[in-house]
Every structure is written in C-alpha cells, then in structure tokens.
C-alpha cells in the first residue's frame, strides 16, 4: 500500500506540475502591433532611451476608441485621444513596456514614458512614446528586445526602417533580428524544461531583437 500511495502522490504531483507549468504558456495573440523603434543617443555617445511608435490592428484600434467623444465622427484629434494615450502608457508599465534592454549583459531599467500621444490614421491607432533609461549607459554591446512574454500581443516590426539609431557614434553597428529568423531564441527555449513554471517565457520565441555594438 505504501508503494501505491507514494506512486499515486508522485503522479498527482506530476500532473499538477504539468497542469501548472503548461497552463502559463498557451495564449494566442489578440492584439497585433506593427512597431518602429529608434534608439536615442546623447552627444557623449551614451544611449538615453528608446522611442517607440506602435500601430495597433484595426480590431483593437476600434476597441480602444470605444466611448471616446469626438467633435467630428470618425476623426480623432491628438487632444481627444490624450486620456487614452495616458491610459495606454500607464497600463504598459505593468508589462515593462514590452521592452527589455541589456547593456553588456546587465539588465537596464526604464523610467516613466515621456512625449506620449496617440494618432488615428487609416482606421488604426498609433501610440508614440519615449522610454528613457533610468541611467544613460555606454555599453560595448547593447541588446533591446521587444515582445510580450504572454504572447497576447504579437509585435511585428515594420518592413521598412524598423529600427533607427539617432545620434549614435559613427562606429556603432546595429543588427536587427526578427523572430522569424530567430533560430537562436528558439533553440534556447527548446533547452528549457517546460515543466518549470518560471520558464514560461513563451513569447520570447517571438522576440524582436535589436543589437548595437560600439567598439
């Protein structure tokens, strides 16, 4: 009976771990964002922050505009969208702005967004904001990833000019990696034990990675 009991408890534990571990990673996107980003550098060559422009898909744009009062139907001015833009950036804080930066391997933090506003054009909303780094850094290698770990939002960078460096030292080299050719990420994830709940970084597979090397 002891063996049976131990076996049973073990199996139940296993089932529980599976259920918990697996449950964290199974979303499919409900929101699609087409992004462009600029990395902003100070005159001394330190990176100060990231400027994002995120265009939402038309279903989500319509959803977000629900209940927003306008003077002219179907036309939304920047002022009329002001409070929505504020809601957007405030909510994004919870998700770390879906922007993850590492300077020479060390995680960097961001401050509250500045210069944020929404724009409505061609039935789509675009959210513009600047994400300043807590402290400007001058790393040899900078990596910025944009993705939603829960994969509720699918980030796709624009086909044309997805990433720009603004005011970067001339010697800096930028590389941009889309998730589609991100074999490195996929491999990393494959090595993870999917039983452990912490490694539920499912969305990482779909990360957009910007790397800047400044010798």
């Amino acid at each position: 009976m002891n063996i049976a009991l131990r076996c049973l408890l073990g199996l139940l534990w296993f089932a529980g771990a599976l259920a918990l571990g697996a449950n964290t990673a199974q979303a499919h996107p409900h929101v699609w964002i087409t992004a462009t980003s600029e990395l902003i550098y100070a005159p001394d060559g330190a990176i100060t922050g990231v400027r994002h422009a995120w265009t939402f898909d038309d279903m989500f744009s319509t959803y977000a505009l629900q209940g927003i009062e306008t003077k002219t139907k179907g036309v939304y001015s920047r002022e009329e969208l002001g409070s929505l833009a504020q809601t957007n950036v405030e909510s994004l804080k919870e998700f770390g702005f879906f922007t993850f930066a590492r300077a020479d391997g060390k995680k960097e933090k961001f401050q509250e967004p500045t210069d944020y506003y929404l724009e409505y054009k061609d039935a789509a909303l675009t959210l513009h904001f600047i994400l300043p780094l807590k402290t400007p850094v001058k790393p040899k290698e900078l990596a910025v990833e944009v993705f939603d770990p829960a994969f509720f939002i699918d980030f796709k960078f624009a086909d044309k000019n997805p990433v720009k460096l603004v005011g970067a030292p001339a010697a800096c080299q930028m590389k941009f990696q889309r998730p589609n050719d991100g074999t490195a990420n996929a491999q990393k994830l494959g090595e993870q034990n999917f039983l452990s709940g912490e490694n539920s970084n499912f969305g990482m597979m779909f990360a957009n990675k910007i790397t800047v090397e400044c010798p």
Partner: peptide, 15 residues
Amino acid sequence: LLAQTPFGGPRPSAE
C-alpha cells in the same frame, strides 16, 4: 488537445 506546450507557435511560416 489543449495545445499547451510552450513549443507551439502561431506563425505558420516560422519556427
């Protein structure tokens, strides 16, 4: 049935 593995991906062209 529940498609719960983290290896699933929604992009048919990728991965």
